[in-house]
Design a protein around this nucleic acid. Sequence first.
DNA 1: ATGGTAGCGGTGCTA
Length: 259
Amino acid sequence: MKIATYNINGIKARLEALTAWLHSAAPDVACLQEIKSVDEGFPREHFEAMGYRVETHGQKSFNGVAILSKLPLEDVVRGLPGDAADEQARWIEATVIGQRAVRICGLYLPNGNPVPGPKYDYKLAWMARMQARVQELLTAEEPLVCCGDYNVIPQAEDAARPQDWLEDALYLPQSRAAFRRLLNLGLTDAFRARNQAAGQYSFWDFQRGAWERNNGIRIDHHLLSPQAADLLRDAQIDKQVRAGEKPSDHVPVWIDLDA
DNA sequence: ATGGTAGCGGTGCTA
């Protein structure tokens, strides 16, 4: 089961590039972030014609997540539990029925800048809520994959210029500690488990020639429950997508599970 | 120190 995460930065702007990548990479499941569309505006029929089931959790202009799956989906949950007043569309869950059933969470974790301020407070509160939700899901002791744009640089080796990020919400000690608390629940960073080399990134800013200078960061992750980690066969970043026509600032990251 | 780019939506916010 090939499971990808891809922050597309707008479904309308990325329809062509996303379609081309789906055809070449052929993931069984693609978790999308920043669809920047309401559910009714998402081109669901386009993806259904390609053989994908489509579940969205959208909002106007900002955020928005979706799951595309060639395999049957069950028990869809929209929105991160734990705060009924939260209106930001950043979380969607579903169980994918392959050879094994895999619970998949697609997430768009808040950016958190500027620091300090309400946006950073929201980021940390959101991460605490996510930890509670993951703890709950882990009690099932089944394959669980939490993938998406975490907006966290886990370690210095995950940034080309870590010194530039010291004051940033993506790299502050509190952000990294909250990410580490997720790992310490027993989750595995799939890409880091399969790729030891530093300097492999999933995001390059549109500004200041970040791509041309390879000034990137690795912030799109798959965290796996122990039962999912046992099934892990591969984890890769589709870096070449960033050099294509009208790219997102993120590239797809995928894992392959024996499931 | 500043401003640089992209998307959405039709202005300024978000990143």
